[in-house]
């Protein structure tokens, strides 16, 4: 039987661009170019490696996001994923983590899955909670923050490097995993991959398809509210000296003045 892998990928504003908030205090997606979250490239890569090691597997990439999020799906398809699902609905604007997890969970169930692979965190929200939320909603094991992962014999195993210990984890499928940027560099799409991606199917779903009411998601349905967003004032220009043999001493003088020594 084919191993059904669903990779959750997010379309995010480029972190190296000038990111801002829109007037309704949601992330402004118009000003800055968007792309497939770099941390989700690691998820796609691990899914591809799991597929390569399996007899028979199929990878679906899934995103919840605006029309342009299609770019993120195309990138993942050009890396080698087989097909894509795009959940898109005007009522989704402003959805928070709990709402997104509801939508993703329904879309994953509708698609059918043995393994869900996520990135460790999105590069815009940086919450790192979606994988745990999905495991809870889908009622399957959570095998998260892995820097090493493999699937064999209906089981997923991996290494989670935590703050105080490194743990070896194991769970039976179906399961939700997330992988870190320590899991191995993501491949670049080949020319052939980019051409092939153009012909791969992208299924579009809206809230009605997933039997979700508009008021369960979006800005109105959100479980959290941002009341204020203020741009951090630029740090006042500091003192910069050129080392001409005295740099270490000058620095010590500064630190002593600040009472660090």
């Amino acid at each position: 039987m084919s191993l059904r892998i669903v990779v959750c990928v997010k379309y995010v504003p480029d972190a190296t661009g000038d990111r801002h908030f829109a007037e309704d205090l949601t992330v402004d997606r118009d000003d800055v170019d968007g792309l497939l979250s770099e941390l989700d490239e690691y998820a796609v890569e691990q899914a591809l490696q799991i597929k390569e090691a399996a007899d028979d597997a199929e990878i679906t990439v899934l995103t919840v996001g605006p029309e342009d999020a299609n770019d993120a799906l195309r990138k993942a398809l050009s890396m080698g994923a087989d097909k894509a699902v795009h959940v898109e609905d005007d009522d989704l604007h402003g959805t928070d983590a709990l709402g997104t997890s509801l939508v993703l969970a329904k879309a994953i169930e509708k698609t059918g899955y043995d393994l869900v692979v996520c990135g460790m965190a999105s590069t815009d929200g940086t919450m790192g909670v979606l994988p745990a939320l999905l495991a809870e909603r889908l009622n399957v094991p959570q095998v998260t923050q892995l820097s090493e992962v493999s699937v064999a014999g209906g089981k997923v195993t991996g290494r989670r490097d935590g703050d105080t210990a490194s743990e070896q984890l194991e769970a039976a499928l179906p399961a939700v995993v997330s992988v870190t940027d320590q899991s191995g560099e993501a491949r670049y799409p080949s020319f052939k991959g980019i051409m092939a991606a153009k012909k791969k199917p992208v299924e579009s779903l809206d809230l009605e398809d997933l039997e979700i009411e508009a008021d369960e998601v979006g800005l109105e349905g959100a479980w959290t509210k941002v009341d204020d967003a203020t741009e951090r004032p630029a740090r006042t220009a500091g003192t910069i000296v050129k080392d001409e043999g005295e740099g270490g001493k000058q620095l010590a003088e500064f630190l002593a003045g600040q009472k660090f020594i």
Partner: peptide, 18 residues
């Protein structure tokens, strides 16, 4: 707040000594 333009292998040991 304070920056030193220089070779860290010069500046850091000098700072440590100081």
């Amino acid at each position: 707040d304070y920056g030193v333009v220089g070779d860290l292998f010069e500046v850091v040991p000098a700072l440590t000594d100081e």
